[in-house]
Amino acid sequence: MPRYAHQWLLIAAAFATVILMLVLPLLLILHQAFAHGLAPVMEALTSNDMGHAIRLTVVVALITVPVNLVFGILLAWCVTRFEFRGRKLLTTLIDIPFAMSPVVAGLCYLVVYGSQGLLGGWLADIDVQLMFALPGMVMVTIFVSCPYVARVLIPLMQSQGPEEEEAAVLMGASGWQVFWYVTLPKIRWALLYGVILTNARAVGEFGAVSVVSGLIRGETLTLPLLIQMLHEDYNTVGAFTAAGLLAAMALVTLLLKTVLEWRQRV
């Protein structure tokens, strides 16, 4: 416990900041969604647009998370278990999606795969449309969320070192057995941590998806895009109901994240 007045003052300032900046917005979501009682919320939740947006958001996340999970494991295995030229370059390159504006990311994909894009003409010839449809939305979501698993795994696997895996190989284990019985049990919590972060970003991505979705109502609107659409329609209850769903996802993410961090510390 702090002993001096100035320490309590600092704690009070920190609490005030957290309440004003973080807690108040969460309360406001509830307040706005339930401003006219429960009935409008239920109506918003059961509307066709909302149902479609929820399903689309889940589909995008269900494709994105496994892809980035596999990529993250492969990259982490590669850069932490072997020494080779260009190792640093690989770990630098995967930070790019973190630094980029999501709108610019969406634009880059549009420039390559859109109808006027570099590969667009060829794609149109074989009758494949990626942009303004589900494939494009999944592609940009994979882009913006690809660093998380690798970023969580690399420092952990680096500090664990390759000795146990090497011992297993020398005792005759196959590559798959080494990964399954030696590596995976050591990294499973970190892996889960990476998956939660990837999922939160995939579900919540707005800028990049908004550029490549074409914003077609009932077709290419994910939950975050639906929020904007409802907001522009002055449908406050609907917008805040969708926001409430996403905020609940965020809180579950924080809860799991905190639990996993305690587990790793112990």
Binding site: V18, F206, L246, A250, K257, T258
Partner: peptide, 23 residues
């Protein structure tokens, strides 16, 4: 407090934007 500090990373930006605008 420590757990809440990460809220802005977990909360979708559109939700943050909508809520801050109303706040």
């Amino acid at each position: 407090m420590e757990a809440l500090v990460d809220l802005p990373f977990a909360l979708p930006t559109a939700v943050a934007g909508l809520t801050l605008a109303a706040l």
